[in-house]
């Protein structure tokens, strides 16, 4: 059981790298969806079958694996963009930064005073690494949709962290987080549509200059 969990977490990291290095929006969205779907298996695998974990898993799978990717796919179909053209920092430097951040989070979590049962598990480093990847996406990409993806990866990182506390975390909190996420993506999709109609581009740079 423990091995399966660690294997899933390693896959999550590999998907992080893939997202950072890929320029096609469609494959980025698909990867984020796969990542979310895989993460939704974690509560059941890590804490066994119970009503609580099953609900968490089902909720996460429906939202992260199906609903949100569906919305994003719909959004890019509406605005007709296929790839991120010029990120603020190129793909190779972002990949290097991402690897350094991942290495850093592994080293950092070795030094954290964790309780004995968590010190060997990969939850903490993978959670930190995924958070860092989300941050990198938010910082380096120009398009509104890749920003939304960065936000989703960020949330995946929080989800991995939350796995440490699933027993203690009330259902309401988890539901609230997932709902927030859904609403955020909704808003993002609508805003993207509006931006595209006003400026006929998706670059968020345009938003910072004022217009009469």
């Amino acid at each position: 059981m423990d091995n399966t969990v660690n294997f899933l977490l390693l896959l999550v990291i590999l998907l992080n790298f893939f997202i950072l290095g890929s320029s096609r929006l469609v494959s980025c969205i698909r990867t984020v969806a796969i990542q979310g779907g895989m993460l939704s298996l974690l509560p059941v695998l890590a804490h066994g079958f119970s009503g609580h974990t099953l609900f968490l898993a089902a909720g996460a799978f429906l939202l992260k694996g199906i609903a949100i990717p569906f919305l994003l796919f719909k959004a890019i179909r509406q605005v007709r963009i296929r790839r991120e053209v010029e990120p603020l920092i190129g793909y190779v430097p972002t990949l290097i930064l991402g690897t350094l951040a991942t290495a850093g989070s592994f080293i950092f979590s070795d030094r954290l005073p964790l309780i004995a049962e968590h010190s060997q598990s990969l939850f903490v480093p993978v959670g930190l690494a995924t958070l860092a990847t989300g941050f990198l996406m938010l910082i380096t990409r120009r398009k509104a949709i890749t920003q939304a993806l960065g936000y989703l990866i960020f949330e995946n990182g929080i989800f991995v962290f939350g796995m440490l506390l699933t027993e203690a975390m009330p259902l309401m909190v988890e539901t609230g987080v997932l709902l927030d996420l859904l609403v955020a993506v909704f808003v993002m999709a609508i805003v993207m549509h509006q931006i595209n109609r006003e400026f006929s581009t998706m670059n968020i740079d345009k938003l910072s200059s004022l217009k009469e």
Binding site: F17, G21, L95, I96, T99, A103, F106, I107
Partner: peptide
């Protein structure tokens, strides 16, 4: 191609980190 090769280097670097952990 350079992008893929740098990616491979980083992957092998990551496998080293994983081992040293």
């Amino acid at each position: 191609i350079p992008q893929l090769l740098v990616g491979a280097s980083l992957l092998s670097f990551f496998s080293l980190i994983l081992l040293l952990r």
